[in-house]
């Protein structure tokens, strides 16, 4: 048996369910977005769902908001995750405890933390009560609008909460496998702390952090649970628009949901390809 056959045989058990179920479902979804579904007698594919979705006047605002939220969530995640990893690397006292706490968000599903954020950040939430208790605000309306707000702050907070540990742990393991040699060398050559950070540590971590951040970006760009609970009524993020088409009592809107979902997927794929081209460097993917 040659190596190619062996490798394909080894990957087959994982490939088969993904190809059949996932890509099968994907294929059906694409067909439905073209209003093409022979099983129920729709046998002339057309673009009407796409033209209607593209004419939706909320679309542009929604795209801007979605980009704003997912890009800022991704960049803030990286910045804070690296900061946290650097601090955690050399923490001594209580390290185990803090590390465990740091890993904890990985186990909490998005919906729970979104509900927690709602109870924490709303104008009558726990944070507002704390500030009222210390006399910082006198009325609940003095508390800033942090959920269901214009900029998606509540949504970003939840994504940060979930993703910082994910990226942070990757960063931490890179830092640990990197050891101290490079830094010490740089320092012995007279580099300042900030120079070590920006010219030694970060460039070394970059290739490891970018792929994880693509996963984060794809997730924030394409999932609806968190913006559904914490977003504003208008404009809403793209996945919420899809969800709204999908659950509309008017069954007419199903192909629209699929068309928009396919457009989101296309946008994501283009982003990933561009990323690979310009930032990917020596990475796989």
């Amino acid at each position: 048996m040659n190596r190619n056959t062996a490798a394909w045989l080894l990957t087959a058990p994982a490939l088969i369910p993904v190809l059949i179920l996932f890509f099968g479902g994907f294929g059906l979804g694409i067909l439905q977005s073209f209003s093409f579904f022979p099983l129920i007698g729709l046998d002339t594919p057309n673009f009407s769902a796409y033209t209607e979705v593209l004419a939706e006047d909320e679309l542009l605002l929604s795209l801007v908001l979605t980009l704003l939220v997912s890009l800022s969530a991704t960049f803030l995640t990286i910045a804070l995750a690296v900061t946290a990893a650097l601090a955690l690397r050399s923490a001594e006292r209580g390290r185990r405890g803090i590390l465990f706490l740091f890993q904890f968000p990985i186990t909490v599903p998005h919906v729970i933390i979104a509900l927690g954020a709602l109870l924490l950040l709303s104008q009558s939430g726990f944070a507002a009560r704390l500030t009222a208790f210390f006399g910082i605000i006198s009325d609940s309306t003095d508390f800033p609008v942090l959920v269901n707000d214009r900029l998606g702050l509540g949504i970003i907070y939840v994504y940060l909460w979930k993703q910082i540990p994910f990226i942070g742990i990757i960063a931490l393991s890179v830092l640990q496998s990197m050891g101290n040699d490079y830094e010490e060398l740089a320092r012995s050559l007279g580099a300042k702390q900030s120079q070590v950070l920006f010219h030694v540590i970060l460039p070394l971590m970059r290739p490891a952090l970018l792929p994880g951040s693509v996963l984060c970006f794809a997730f924030t760009f394409g999932s609806y649970e968190v913006p559904f609970l914490l977003g504003r009524s208008y404009p809403s993020m793209l996945p919420v628009l899809v969800y709204r088409y999908f659950t509309n009592f008017n069954l007419v809107q199903r192909p629209l949901a699929m068309a928009l979902a396919v457009l989101i997927t296309l946008f994501l794929l283009v982003t990933v390809i561009l990323y690979k081209k310009f930032l990917g460097g020596r990475n796989r993917l």
């Binding site: 209003s35 099983l39 129920i40 729709l42 209607e52 069954l251 007419v252 192909p255």
Partner: peptide
């Protein structure tokens, strides 16, 4: 709206179409 309306009307007789 044309595609959707046809969904509604043509959901019938699925088995034959199958």
């Amino acid at each position: 709206m044309a595609p959707g309306i046809s969904i509604l009307s043509e959901v019938k007789n699925i088995n034959k179409k199958f």
